[in-house]
């Protein structure tokens, strides 16, 4: 079963060198233990463009689909047997990147 770990933060400042080092250690562990699927950091909400092509022609809108104080700054997708395993990994991930993490099952 896969889970999405959304990294939530109130700034899109890049991780510090210490945070980056901790994230590398955590990622190595995810890979070594077979949990790793994918991970990435994201550009800030200012860099977002929303596309709505449900109608006749595609509409492009500058900015994120919802403005909020905290937003998605990165994510992991991990493989975990159940939520207990996922929550433990997410707790370590949060510690490593020094940011909040939301866990959701991938259906």
């Amino acid at each position: 079963m896969q889970y999405l770990f959304s990294v939530i933060h109130d700034s899109d400042a890049l991780a510090t060198a210490d945070e980056m080092a901790a994230i590398d250690v955590f990622n190595d562990r995810l890979q070594a233990e077979g949990h790793w699927v994918f991970a990435a950091g994201l550009g800030g909400p200012d860099t977002a463009t929303v596309i709505d092509n449900r109608g006749e022609e595609a509409l492009f809108t500058d900015g994120p689909f919802v403005e909020s104080k905290e937003y998605l700054v990165g994510f992991w997708i991990v493989e975990a047997a159940d939520l207990d395993v996922a929550l433990k990994l997410a707790a370590e991930g949060s510690k490593a990147c020094n940011r909040k993490v939301e866990v959701r099952p991938v259906l």
């Binding site: 079963m1 047997a81 159940d82 939520l83 207990d84 959701r104 099952p105 259906l107």
Partner: peptide
Amino acid sequence: KAARIPYRVP
């Protein structure tokens, strides 16, 4: 069910 909260003794 969806998030698969496990059914076991921790």
